[in-house]
Amino acid sequence: MIFSVSESVQDTLISSKINSGGESDWIMHHVLDSHEFDFAPFGSIPLPHISLFGLDISITKHVVFLWIVAVLLIIAFKIAANAYKKSLVPHGFTNFMEVMIIFVRDDIAKPTIGKGYEKFLPYLLTVFFFILFSNFLGLVPNGSTITSNISVTATLAIIAFIVIQGGGMMKNGVFGYFRGLIPGGVPAWLLPIMFIVEILGLFTKPFALAVRLFANMTAGHIIIFSLIGLIFILKTFYVAPVSVAFALFIYLLEILVALIQAYIFTMLTALFIGMAVHQEH
């Protein structure tokens, strides 16, 4: 009987998916992950299903783009790092990369973490450029924004959570870190409540990080697709100039959002690290 409950829930979910498809199905197709790699208008390549210890670790479209981001990052920074071997004075591409690296170092890590920021710099730089490249790759035709997948942003948030707590515990000790969570001068009867609130606060921070990045990156794409979709829903060409103009505007806004979200995610992570490391403030 219990088995049937589970099955019926699954059935309902599937049927609701099928029924609710309709006009917006193709938008979801572009935003969501899939088991094929699109080369519109040249068709698509099916991607393999892999399973490890019962866990579905199929190479999906987002995994492919994840790897493209990783390869692009490695190539880009290999070139930048090699340029420094020739001369300490960068130019061209290296200069551009250096501006962003210095931005992360001097405007994000240094003011928020303060003393001892060097330890967290590799993580912050990786997160910043990973999100930045991912966001921009989503703006390329046929590209897919991996940061508009809640799994990806959740994983980034989990890593941020580990780094934040780990940084705090390494600096203050495990016991000292948890003691430092509660601000001084709190009445004793309030302590249990404060402790629960603070522990909850530890989890809400990365949760907010994940949802913020996911929502920002998804919303822009859905708006663009919806604007373009107006042409097909209204079945007229006359709406095309308006749709394209607005879509272009949103696209330009997306470029800004791509930069801002990479900055915000890194900035907030650095801020939380700073709060965990320097608890006295």
């Binding site: 969501l32 992950d33 579905d56 999906t60 995994v63 799994s151 998804t218």
Partner: peptide, 12 residues
């Protein structure tokens, strides 16, 4: 849209 895919988490 809000599906969590454990495989993707693993890969990320």
């Amino acid at each position: 849209l809000l599906d969590v895919n454990p495989g993707l988490i693993f890969w990320v």
